[in-house]
């Protein structure tokens, strides 16, 4: 069976849904930042330490890296094929009147998220893994202080929030689009999944948006 459009879409769906799952774990971890400062510091750093040592977590993290890469690669392949299928546009184009803007601009939203990811990895993941971080009172690397101090910058918080909104719209379309690709066609479950998608997107977006804002205002 040669790889065709639907197989590509399946990869997009699987990797996308795994990333959706990861976001939940990530958010749960980050919620610790909302605890009182001292407790938050120790707990968050301990949690970060746990994530870097466990073999199971290690495997999951490789799946995560692979998912991000595959999601991007297939997105590129699909986009190129779509461009080839639709090589000439219209002089007057009002096709947008009959669909949602974010559903048409998943590539743009995805690119914003990708840029964010690069910054995000450089600021935290890279520093944690390869940089020199002071240790907290438990002897864990003090990621907490790094995160909190970066959220002192107003512009950084704004950028972060904007990117989270891009992520939100990406999820809003991506989640249920993935369920379509997986073949959920029964109207009842389609409706449920659509509602679940809204709820999920709402929680993730609000959660990731509130944390930096909260940290920013608590420390000002």
């Amino acid at each position: 069976m040669h790889a065709n459009t639907l197989v590509h879409k399946l990869w997009m769906a699987f990797t996308g849904l795994f990333l959706c799952f990861f976001l939940v774990i990530h958010l749960l971890g980050n919620l610790q930042l909302l605890l009182p400062a001292e407790r938050a510091q120790l707990q968050f750093n301990a949690y970060s330490h746990l994530l870097s040592g466990n073999i199971l977590i290690k495997i999951i993290s490789y799946v995560l890296y692979a998912s991000i890469i595959l999601h991007v690669v297939y997105a590129l392949i699909i986009t190129l094929q779509n461009r080839a299928a639709n090589d000439k546009g219209y002089a007057k184009d009002n096709r947008g009147q009959v669909s949602k803007w974010y559903s048409r601009n998943m590539g743009v939203l995805g690119t914003i998220i990708l840029i964010f990811l690069v910054i995000h990895f450089r600021d935290y993941w890279y520093v944690y893994k390869f940089g020199h971080l002071p240790l907290d009172s438990n002897g864990d690397k003090d990621l907490y202080t790094l995160v909190v101090s970066s959220f002192q910058e107003g512009w950084y918080v704004c950028l972060y929030v904007l990117c989270m909104w891009a992520l939100g719209f990406h999820l809003l379309h991506g989640f249920y689009s993935a369920t379509r690709t997986l073949g959920v066609y029964h109207p009842k479950y389609v409706r449920w999944l659509k509602q679940f998608g809204w709820l999920y997107t709402g929680c993730i977006t609000l959660g990731f948006t509130l944390i930096p804002i909260y940290v920013y205002f608590v420390n000002h």
Binding site: K9, N86, V98, K100, S103, R104, T179, L182, Y185
Partner: peptide, 27 residues
């Protein structure tokens, strides 16, 4: 090209064919 599930097709289809058929095809 691929289906991005924008659902524009259903809105313009003169017979109002539902995009859920696409999900069914995927299934």
């Amino acid at each position: 090209g691929h289906c991005s599930n924008t659902e524009a097709c259903e809105a313009e289809c003169p017979q109002q064919i539902s995009v859920l058929h696409i999900a069914r095809m995927n299934y």
